[in-house]
Amino acid sequence: MGYFLQQLINGLTLGMIYGLIALGYTMVYGIIGMINFAHGEIYMIGAFLAVIGFTVLGLLGISYVPVALLIVLFTAMLFTAVYGWTLERVAYRPLRSAPRLAPLISAIGASIFFQNYVQLAQGARVKPIAPVISGGYTVFEEGGFTVQLSYVQILIWLLTLALMVAFALLIQRTSLGRAQRACEQDRAMASLVGIDVNRTISLTFVIGATLAAVAGVMVTLYYGVVDFYIGFLAGIKAFTAAVLGGIGSLPGAMLGGLILGLVEAFWSAYFSVEYKDVAAFTILVLVLIFKPSGLLGRPEVEKV
């Protein structure tokens, strides 16, 4: 029971991180109908910015955690916003009316570019940081096994929940959200009501990138290490989460992320840690075969 509960806690935490990254995939897919395969690298850059940020703040002697955290989150979001914006301008916009294979190749190109860029700038070795937040609650003890809920996990949960609420309000209640949904449904008509479609697409990339940055910062706090390659696996898993939830569906991305996190945690706990990544890919294959529209996605055919 205790062991199970611990895996539940760990799985939910992991799932929230996947969910935040998955939102970026699903938003971009919704609006331009393409998978942004460089999105995982944006998350990786967010994680590196966190390492750099916490290190620099440490050197400056700013160690009060809430302040340091806010500064790091803010700078990581700002920088990744610029990366996301540039990525769309350089790798996607020129190819918007090209055959679908072209932006896919350009996305993979951008992804390789980002990996190498970070590798050159930061080195290929794993980068550790000193623990920023340590400790936690002991939920209960049972036969020598203690169920821990760490402060970092609590932070991840709260931050993710806050972001989800803010994000849902943005999409449902603001004119930017309405513009995004309008562009998703009929881009030409959106421009006929006066929406600047290019600007809306740019902002979608920017929002997706900032969410990925938050995920990157949280993963740095959680694991304490990053390397230039983490974007690849996390990207594929978040992509799986987005497909599982129904690509294009925002609640679906979050749900898919949570399920994937839980599956991975329980798989590692009860079967084998070595093959935990297999679980994610098995899910991806099964979903694509049996329910390509995902759990909360719309079926392709739609009556209008």
Partner: peptide
């Protein structure tokens, strides 16, 4: 426009709000 092209997955009110954008 031809074919009406209303935003099918948005409410009537949201369609009107979009119209008011400019």
């Amino acid at each position: 426009p031809e074919g009406r092209r209303i935003f099918a997955r948005m409410t009537v009110l949201e369609n009107l709000q979009l119209g008011a954008l400019s």
